[in-house]
């Protein structure tokens, strides 16, 4: 139990995917303008991360490794994720239209989100077992959610402020992200001290 909590906290706070590992920067910058979009996107990301881990982990250990096809990891994972996302979208559209309406539009965007592929691959490289891998994905998704929600608040305030013309738009957003990522430094060492 202790170990699982440590994995979640490490993934969500210390090694935050967006702010300290630079994964999933595109949606972080693109969809964080409004709080509701940021929330929808991050929930979809958590969902797909969990699903992708649940599928790619067994594929790695029961198909690729026994057959000695470890080098096919990249191709197999990206295809599985892409197919999975499409499948989920179709199923949601058909059977749960309400959920599809709020979540569905974000799904195709996630196929090429490097955070999802990143979490699947890092679960394998970290040699987590299945349960640990699932919690690591959940923690990473949670970290993404946290960063998105925090940042959408920051951006809401930033929109109305004046800044030099050449900094308008993306540059000032990136500088704000720099300051936000500073704050996540505060978490370094926290998990080690609590559980160490």
């Amino acid at each position: 139990m202790k170990e699982i909590i440590a994995i979640i906290l490490t993934a969500a706070l210390v090694n935050n995917y967006v702010l300290s590992q630079f994964l999933g920067i595109c949606p972080f910058l693109g969809v964080s303008k409004k709080l509701d979009q940021a929330t929808g996107m991050s929930i979809a990301v958590i969902f797909v991360m969990l699903l992708a881990t649940a599928v790619t982990w067994p594929i790695q250990y029961y198909v690729l490794n026994p057959k000695g096809l470890g080098y096919m990891q990249t191709i197999v994972f990206i295809l599985v994720i892409a197919a999975l996302v499409q499948l989920v979208e179709i199923i949601l559209k058909k059977y749960i239209p309400g959920l599809h309406k709020s979540l569905g539009v974000y799904l195709p965007l996630i196929t090429t989100n490097c955070a999802v592929l990143g979490v699947c691959i890092s679960n394998i490289t970290a040699e987590y077992n299945f349960v640990q891998a699932m919690f690591n994905s959940f923690g990473s998704g949670l970290g993404f959610f946290l960063a998105m929600v925090l940042f959408s608040g920051v951006r809401g305030r930033m929109e109305n402020n004046n800044c030099p013309a050449c900094f308008k738009g993306l540059p000032i957003t990136l500088i704000a992200a720099a300051i936000l990522s500073c704050s996540f430094f505060g978490f370094a060492g926290v998990v080690d001290n609590i559980f160490g």
Binding site: F22, C166, F167, K168, P171, I172, L174, A177, F184
Partner: peptide
């Protein structure tokens, strides 16, 4: 991490200032 974001932001701002004729409209 923060250095990465900041340097990237400043570089884009410099490019906006000197190399593109008009400031980018899209966010």
């Amino acid at each position: 991490a923060p250095g990465g974001f900041a340097v990237f932001g400043i570089l884009i701002a410099v490019v906006n200032k000197f190399f593109t004729n008009k400031p980018k409209k899209s966010e």
